[in-house]
């Protein structure tokens, strides 16, 4: 029987790469990892080395990840930078899809209603006063925004809010907040966008300004136009 290596250590210029075999059992893997690592010297003075772990087609549970971290961190100079895998869980994939998708919703968001989506929101309809739209990504409203819009609700400060008619009660992007002035100023009619500027203030600007401020907004980078 040929004994295959279950743990392959590779030195790169960024640090150490640990390639873990994905066909053996986890306990075997741990055992061999421990053996391989014991060859390393373990004193507190040595220069710290970043370690990247790659698990191939194996998914590690949180507990298994912790065990590996424990083994590696036993050597004081080793620091795990990342644990990567070729595969992800179905639910994670589902979540990633949700987060990257543009959700098209065709309705009027009325007073007291809250519309929340994981990714970007494209609302065809109005947000009435007292209504609220929340998205992890950007918010685009083909209609009047008269209620509250919260883009990048998980902390994405790059998120923007665009509306055909921008008369919001409040705008929120990530954890910044801006409210309408108490005096009723002129009603805005044209399409506008809102974003966080370098002073961490929410700014309302012409739609055309967006292209230079958030160039990454373009989704279709290749082909087409």
């Amino acid at each position: 029987m040929i004994k295959t290596q279950k743990v392959i250590m590779k030195g790169t210029k960024d640090g150490l790469l640990l390639l873990l075999d994905d066909s053996c059992s986890f306990s075997e893997l741990l055992k061999e990892l421990e053996e391989k690592l014991s060859g390393q010297k373990n004193d507190e003075d040595s220069r710290s080395v970043h370690v990247r772990v790659h698990t191939g087609n194996r998914i590690l549970t949180k507990e298994q990840q912790k065990e590996i971290e424990k083994l590696v961190h036993f050597h004081h100079h080793l620091h795990i930078e990342s644990i990567e895998s070729n595969v992800i869980l179905k639910e994670d994939a589902e979540r990633m899809k949700q987060e990257s998708e543009i959700h098209v919703v065709n309705k009027v968001v009325r007073s007291g209603q809250i519309l929340k989506v994981m990714g970007d929101l494209l609302l065809i309809g109005d947000v009435n006063p007292g209504g609220k739209v929340v998205a992890r990504g950007n918010i685009f409203i083909l209609g009047a925004l008269k209620g509250i819009a919260h883009a990048g609700c998980d902390g994405n400060e790059e998120a923007v809010i665009c509306a055909s008619n921008m008369n919001p009660m409040q705008l929120r992007i990530a954890d910044c907040l801006n409210r309408a002035p108490d005096q009723d100023e002129i009603r805005r009619q044209e399409s506008e966008c809102a974003y966080i500027d370098e002073n961490r203030q929410i700014i309302i600007d012409r739609l055309a300004a967006l292209r230079s401020i958030r160039p990454n907004l373009n989704r279709f980078m290749e082909g087409g136009i």
């Binding site: 009325r110 007073s111 007291g112 209603q113 009435n128 006063p129 007292g130 209504g131």
Partner: peptide
């Protein structure tokens, strides 16, 4: 009007 909007939302 605000309350009517809320009611319409509930009726929908």
């Amino acid at each position: 009007v605000r309350d009517a909007d809320r009611i319409i939302g509930l009726l929908e």
